[in-house]
Design a protein around this nucleic acid. Structure first.
Lengths: 228, 228
DNA sequence: TAATTTATGGCAGCCACTGACAGATGACAA
DNA sequence: TTGTCATCTGTCAGTGGCTGCCATAAATTA
C-alpha cells in the first residue's frame, strides 16, 4: 500500500474537510443559507479553491451518494452472468449497503448526514435525482451488455428504470422518521424489493423468460414504426 | 365567457410571448448559452419583469409540461372509482395526450418544442423529472383516496412511482428520433403501457387483487419495524 | 540544488435572481 | 370625463454561484 505521495494525501484531506464542513454548516443553518465562502473559510481555504475540488456547491453535498453509485456499478459488473437483470441489480444494491455497514464510523456518519440533508432539502433532492438519472444510462449499458442486447433496446431501459424507482421508493419511504441507522434502511430495502418481486411476473426482465404467452413483438426496442 | 379584462389578456399575451421567445432562443443557441436578458429583450420587456412571470429561467421552459401535470391530476380525479389504480392512471395519461391532439396548432407546436428541448438539455430534463416527482405526492394522495387507504401506505406510492417511471420511459424512448408528431408519441405510450402490463401480475396494484398467494404482510405501509 | 509540474490565492467579471422605490397603466366609481 | 385606487412595469443596487487569468508557493523529479 504505502503513501500515494504527500500531495495526494493532502488533497484527500482537504476534500474530506470541505465535505465535513459543508455538511455541518448545511445541517446547522440550511443549504441555501450557507455560502461557499463560509465553507471555504471554515477549512481555511480560498473560495476559488473550493471550486477546484467541487464544480458546484451542490456537488459537495452529493459527492458521497455519487461515490455510492460508482460502487454500485462496479458490483453490478461483478455479478454472475446467469443472474436475471433485476436480481443482479438487487444484489449489487445490497453490496453497496453492506460496504457502508462495514465502513469506519466517521464514514457512515458522513453518509447519514448527507442522506438526511438530501431528503430534507428540495434543491439537493433534485440534484440527487438528476445524478441518479445520469447514472441510469450507465446501468442500462451494463445490463444490455450482460444480456447481449443493444443499449437502445427498450427492455434494459425498462428494467433499470423500474429498479431505480424501487430503490428511490425505498429511500423515500424511510425518510420521515429519519434514516437513523443502516440496518433499518437495509431492512426497508428488502421489503420494497420483496414488494416488487410480488408485483412482477416471473421472468419479466428477460426476453425468453415467462414461458407461455408473453409476446415480444416490440421488445426489440426502437425499431420501425416511428421512423418516417 | 367574454374577456377576462384587458389586463388579464395582456398578461397572458406577455406570458406566451416570453415562452415562445425563450423556446426559440433555447433551441437556436442552447439553453445555457441563452441569458434571461436576451429573452426579455426579444419580448421588449425588462429582465425584472421576466422574473415576475417565471420564478426561474428553468420555469419558462417547463411551464407547459407542468400544465400537463395539472390536467393529468384533474383527469385522474374524474376516473370511475372501480378502475384499478394503474388502469386509471393510464387512462388519465391518455386523456392528456388526447387533449393535446385536439389543441390549436400553435399550442401543439409549443408543446413539441418544449419536449424537444427538455429531452436534449440535461439540466432541463432533470428539472422536468424533479417536477414529475414533486407532483407524484399529489397523485399518491389521489390514488390513496380512491382506494380508501392512507397516503402513507406503501402500495399507492409504489403504484404511482411505477407509473411515473413507465411514462418517463415512454418519453425517453421516443426522443432520439425526435417527437415529430403526437400520434407517434401516443402510439409509443400504448406500447410501453402494454409492456408494463405484460410485466406485472394481474391485481398487483390492489391489495385484495391477485387471488392466491400474495402475502400482504407489509403492504400495510410504514408501520412498526423501523421505529425505535 | 535546479528544473518542472501542480496546487493555491487573488482579482475581475458574467449571470441568475431579489428587494425597494418610482412611474405608468388599466379598473372602477362619481 | 375625471379622479382614485390597485396593479403592472422599469430602474437600480446588491448578493451569491461560478469562471478565466495570472502570479506565487509548494511538492516532485532530475
Amino acid at each position: 500500500m504505502s503513501q500515494p505521495g504527500l500531495r495526494e494525501r493532502k488533497k484527500e484531506r482537504t476534500r474530506l474537510a470541505l465535505i465535513d464542513a459543508a455538511l455541518d454548516l448545511f445541517l446547522a443553518q440550511g443549504y441555501e443559507a450557507t455560502t461557499v465562502d463560509q465553507i471555504a473559510a471554515a477549512v481555511e481555504v480560498s473560495p476559488r479553491t473550493f471550486f477546484r475540488y467541487f464544480a458546484t456547491k451542490e456537488d459537495v453535498a452529493l459527492s458521497l451518494p455519487v461515490d455510492g453509485q460508482e460502487v454500485m456499478l462496479r458490483e453490478l459488473a461483478g455479478r454472475p452472468a446467469d443472474e436475471p437483470p433485476f436480481v443482479a441489480l438487487g444484489h449489487a444494491m445490497r453490496a453497496v449497503v453492506a460496504e457502508l455497514q462495514n465502513g469506519d464510523q466517521t464514514e457512515t456518519g458522513r453518509f447519514l448526514k448527507a442522506r438526511e440533508l438530501v431528503e430534507s432539502t428540495p434543491a439537493l433532492f433534485a440534484g440527487s435525482v438528476r445524478r441518479m438519472m445520469e447514472n441510469e444510462q450507465r446501468l442500462v449499458t451494463e445490463i444490455a451488455r450482460r444480456e447481449g442486447r443493444s443499449p437502445a433496446d427498450l427492455l434494459p431501459l425498462f428494467v433499470v428504470s423500474l429498479f431505480t424507482t424501487v430503490a428511490r421508493v425505498g429511500f423515500e419511504s424511510c425518510h420521515p422518521r429519519a434514516v437513523e441507522d443502516l440496518p433499518a434502511f437495509a431492512e426497508r430495502l428488502e421489503q420494497i424489493l420483496a414488494l416488487a418481486e410480488r408485483s412482477l411476473r416471473p421472468g419479466w426482465d428477460r426476453v425468453q423468460g415467462s414461458p407461455g404467452g408473453v409476446s415480444d413483438q416490440f421488445i426489440e426496442g426502437s425499431s420501425g414504426q416511428v421512423a418516417t
